[in-house]
Design a protein around this nucleic acid. Structure first.
Lengths: 338, 338
DNA sequence: TACCTGTGCTAAATCGATTTTGTTAAAATT
DNA sequence: AATTTTAACAAAATCGATTTAGCACAGGTA
């Protein structure tokens, strides 16, 4: 009942192991194996159910045919959809994927990358968190194939894909403003990440374009690592301190969920007491009455593009890339909250 | 900048490769390598940052040090917590994990198991779905280490861990009945799985124990694979057909979420118009006003126990197991809905 | 006839570890 | 003093593939 090896197949077919290897790897013609012999080998391999030993192949070829996917949180719904698409896309190309989450642990990112390196992944798909910059930089310097998703570091020259954050926020803001709302609050975290800055820029630009003054006190920057309860309180204080607000734009779904809790706690009704819009969809938003309007991320597009970019790097004999920085449009989804 | 091999370390330390291998694998004493030499080797290995080549080790030892985790859906919150705990527990023991989801695809389960076999995982952690029975049976017959989670097949003799479904439902029912509610509906799916049957048994037993008649029309069996919209309609029809119901027990969180949608659609208020209880917690339930009371699964316990059971099988020189079937108690969490 | 050129395959080296078997000098035993 | 043990490593086989180099034979050329 033990595993069938290439040698066994060779014996069964009455040829040398190397011959079998050539045929099974499609190098039969090139090595001028007769069609007759080749097809016999194929037959034997087929009906004996031979499967090459992964580790042996990897050892010899130096390719693990494995990609590493590093995300912030495995529990997030962003990750869930991302992982699904990436896995199927990778599998189509003969790769498989190992997942890792940094779980918002600043230093854990580095360990993870090293861990994956130890396991010899052929390439990396990373949603960068603050604090992983050095590690990613190293990977790139070591010429490891890397694609960043959802964000990027301007200092690191490696391909990335993300939603067009600026445009996404603009879409939402235009909707709010179009409904006549002008006192619009903006809630963000204070981490210095490109995507966050872009969202803020979308907010201020939209206001300016409509000649609405941008007020600093309408922008709340929550600290990144905080007790959940503290954030809730701060958020509540913000809303209470600005009773004139008729809408709030939450720049991430985590913030949006906090917002829902605070709004419920304060007994406010959406959208009349306050309209709510959130960047990045979440299961809860579909369900939570009256339905939270969101900017949806083109997750499938991001995943597919990321794999494409990575495969292009893995493919040694493909020219230089034309587009290494991809921004995909988000989709505004109108629900009851705004 | 190429990888450091064991040979390189040997050269640096001025000994043979085999000697290095012995020392690094803790067989130095056994192979009577002098402490002096051993520590020199350790030093060299340390400061050269040598990491053994995984694939080579695997090839030689025949162990991939990898576990396969097969779940129904990667997106589920049950999976999310499960995966996290399992991954950290596995890592503590030097294993890593590859995930796969069957995504409710009956036949996909088999493929997955085969795919994992190809990749040579050392053991399997599976949340069995209907239709995977044969494949799992095969694994067990091939003496592959397998642990089932969340459910099991009585016909297959392999260790499993799950929540005590019967007791969990009992806890919830006792609460409802204790509040004086007697017209309690029960919503379930019609798949023939142990855990579902146990939950139903918990429901009927609790009623009987309190001398409340069990009415067939208060039990709704939704078909497993249905359009979401169809299920919603059927659920709504059920509630409308039984206006006397003062509480509903949803036997899975998926059903509970459907329930929330229907209840909102019908304009009913929890808990006064109708009380709601759900088996298996979900992010949404914490948030959705007025908070949905649930039976929470001891996910961490399940994960840890599962790993323990699996490791025990992987450990050849450990005696037979005492407990191969573990049931862990669930926890009743009271929120606003019941 | 000797030499070259293709054919069609096989033998052997290789990847980087682990593990079994060997080797040599010193110590212990008879 | 001759022989056996033991200490302390080194050498070589092995895992299961891929890949390079090689080998025998047929036919064409000089």
């Amino acid at each position: 009942m033990k595993r069938l090896t290439l040698k066994d197949v060779a014996k069964l077919a009455g040829v040398a192991p190397s011959t079998v290897s050539f045929v099974l790897n499609g190098k039969g013609k090139q090595m001028r194996i007769r069609d007759e012999v080749a097809s016999r080998i194929m037959q034997v391999a087929e009906k004996s159910g031979y499967e090459p030993h992964r580790m042996a192949v990897n050892l010899r070829t130096g390719q693990s045919k494995t990609l590493g996917l590093i995300v912030e949180s495995i529990s997030g719904s962003f990750f869930a959809s991302l992982a699904k698409t990436i896995e199927t896309e990778a599998e189509r190309r003969g790769y498989n994927v190992v997942y890792c989450s940094t779980e918002n642990n600043a230093q854990k990112g580095g360990e993870l990358i090293r861990m994956l390196g130890r396991q010899m992944v052929d390439g990396y798909l990373i949603t960068p968190a603050p604090g992983m910059e050095k590690e990613i930089q190293q990977l790139v310097q070591q010429h490891k194939p890397v694609v960043l998703m959802d964000s990027y570091f301007p200092s690191i020259k490696t391909p990335y894909v993300l939603i067009n954050n600026f445009d996404g926020v603009q879409q939402g803001m235009k909707h709010l403003i179009g409904k006549g709302l002008t006192k619009i609050g903006f809630v963000m975290v204070d981490v210095k990440l490109i995507q966050i800055e872009e969202r803020l820029r979308g907010y201020t630009t939209a206001l300016k374009e409509h000649k609405i003054p941008v007020k600093k006190k309408h922008i709340l920057q929550l600290q990144y690592h905080r007790q959940r309860e503290d954030s809730l309180n701060e958020l509540q204080a913000f809303i209470e301190a600005n009773p004139e607000l008729d809408a709030i734009f939450f720049s991430t779904n985590y913030l949006g969920i906090l917002g829902l809790e605070v709004i419920a706690r304060m007994g406010l009704k959406m959208p009349d007491d306050i309209a709510v819009l959130c960047f990045d969809d979440h299961d809860i938003f579909r369900l939570y009455p009256p339905g939270i309007s969101v900017i949806e991320q083109p997750i499938e597009g991001i995943a597919k593009t990321a794999i494409d970019l990575l495969m292009h790097q893995l493919d040694k004999n493909s020219g230089p890339m034309k587009k290494t920085a991809v921004e995909l449009p988000g989709k505004f989804i109108l629900r009851g909250s705004a």
